[in-house]
Structure formats: C-alpha cells, structure tokens
Amino acid sequence: MTKTAPPEGSPDYAALIQSIAQRQDRQAFADLFAHFAPRVKAWMLRGGVNPTAAEELAQETMLSVWRKAHLFDPERAGASTWIFTIARNLRIDTVRRERHPSDLMPDPSEEPDAPVQADRMIAMSQQETRIRSALSLLPPEQSEVIRKAFFEDKVHAEIEKELGIPLGTVKSRLRLAITRLRAALGDLA
C-alpha cells in the first residue's frame, strides 16, 4: 500500500491510534484525547445531549478508542470517521437505548481477512480532507440538510417541519449533496 502523508500541519491521528494498538502508547492517547474529546463533546451537545451526559459520552468514546484501537484499519476509515462512528453508536445506546447494527457486526479480527479492493486502498486521511473541502463547497441549502441530518438527532420528518420545506425536498437535497460528496472522492475510489 502506498502511504500518503497527512495534510501539512495536522498530526497523523491514524498513526496515533495505531501506536495505541501496537504498544499501549499513553502519550498517543493523550494527544488523541486533547484533539477529539472536545469535538465529540461538542457533537453530543449539538445533538441535544445535556452537558453532563455529553462530557461522559466524550469520555466513553475515548475509552472505546483505547480499547478498540487494535480494530482500527486505516485502509477502511480515517481517524475522524472511525471515532465519529464510535461516538454515534454510544449516543444511540445512551440516548435511545437502541443499538446501531455496526455494534452487532463481528470484529474484523474474528473475520477471515476480507480482501480490500486495490482501488479502495487509498489513504483515508486524504478522503477526509477531500470530503471537508467538498462540504465547504456545497450550496447552502444542501449543506444545511447534511448538517442537520448529522448534528441534530432528528428524523427527516422533523427537519422537514423545522425548515418548512416538503419532505421530498429534504430528500432531494440530501441526494444532491451525497452525489457531490461521492463525486469529490471520484478519482480516489
């Protein structure tokens, strides 16, 4: 696999997760915590979680990062993406007392090695960078539905009411936004 250097000036968070996996590196963990815990807390607060629970969920997310570091596969997800999915699943578990199906999936370590397609073997940190730039270029109305869908623990029917636009419009804006985000990764994938 060709390794692509992370964007200039930003630490290689994927490498920090790997050094936790390889040698229980507490300094790497402290660096990850400093960067991600306050962002996870912010994300929980945006989703309507109260400040005490948001603080606890941010800590639980980071504890899972420590415990699951050996399951992190930098060929399948970037560091932010992986940590986002952990935070998401904990929010569902705590707030709704439900589970996300990905928590019911076998650990990659207990599965026979699923082949990663050659064209998927791209540096995921690069994928995240491209997505961020594509997000900043979305038309405001598409950016709004994407942000609402991710930040606020709301179903699309609630977004419909809040924005005062028909559900069909919410869905078509989402579809257009997703098409653009996928296109941003077009020559990567």
Partner: peptide
C-alpha cells in the same frame, strides 16, 4: 460505498466542530 462516504462526512463534520473543553481532570479520570 455510499455509507462509507457518509460516515466520512460525519468524521469531517466532527473534525470541523468548534471544540468544547472537558473538565480539567477528565483525562486523568479516564
């Protein structure tokens, strides 16, 4: 594939959020 784009979108949005500090002893307690 679409899901992986969407989860990466979640990651990118998380990355761009203005951080909200945790209590000072949060890391030590963890």
């Amino acid at each position: 594939d679409t899901l992986s784009t969407l989860e990466a979108t979640g990651g990118a949005l998380l990355e761009d959020l203005p951080p909200v500090p945790l209590s000072i002893d949060a890391l030590d307690r963890l």
